[in-house]
Write a protein that binds this DNA or RNA. Structure first.
Length: 197
DNA sequence: CCGCCGATCTTT
DNA sequence: AAGATCGGCGGG
């Protein structure tokens, strides 16, 4: 990759073992890597478990959401609307469901592969400006559900190049949900054109 | 630029 | 029957 130093997210276990509400804004400006594709995360949402009616884990463990109950630092990838994949970073201690939905990112490297994977995209902004777009651009699907981001056992990792999360991120309610829609558990990088609408 | 609607299939 | 979405189409 041509993005300079790529180090694991600082204190990965320490950070990701925390509550998703604390973890989520800390993931802004980190880099999601898959092979030669790199994207900078610019929009996230926090999902809790039993306390969060909007969470896939609300009704307890199932085959689909099993990864959410596992150790932090894994990818939880789910299929929805009959055609889309969305990716989360699992957080919270093992046994406690929690995750951060990766909603949007800024393309950084491997743009050729992203364009190829996103035939519908007309502008660079179309590549990763939504949770399913991001997965399509980065080539994430069922094969990556449960992938370990620390050891990159499936070629996917979360790293930092030293850019800190924004001091004052944008904050608002989560998008596309009806249950527990009032909680301001969505964060984004202010003024970034890749943030979804 | 914005809003509406259909696609498509898994989970509830 | 709804869903942690997207893209195409029509209107302003």
């Amino acid at each position: 990759m041509s993005t300079g130093a790529a180090l694991p997210v600082p204190g990965p276990i320490d950070l990701l073992a925390g509550d998703p509400l604390e973890v989520a804004p800390q993931l802004l400006n980190t880099l999601l890597v898959h092979g030669d594709r790199v994207a900078r995360i610019v929009e996230v949402e926090a999902y809790r478990g039993i306390e969060d009616p909007a969470s896939h884990a609300y009704r307890g463990p199932t085959k689909r959401n099993a990864v959410m109950f596992g150790p932090p630092g894994r990818l939880y990838v789910y299929f929805t609307y009959g055609m889309h994949w969305c990716a989360n970073v699992v957080c919270g201690p093992e046994g406690v469901a929690g995750a951060v939905l990766l909603r949007a990112a800024a393309p950084v490297a491997g743009l050729d592969a992203m364009w190829s994977a996103r035939r519908a995209a007309r502008t660079e902004r179309d590549l990763c400006s939504g949770p399913a777009k991001l997965c399509q651009a980065m080539g994430l699907n069922r094969d990556h559900d449960g992938a370990d981001l620390f050891v990159a056992d499936r070629g996917v990792s979360l790293v930092t190049d030293g850019m800190s999360p924004p001091l004052r991120p944008g904050v608002g309610v989560r998008i596309g949900i009806r249950q527990a829609a009032e909680h301001p558990w969505r964060w984004w990088v202010p003024d970034d054109p890749n943030v979804s609408r």
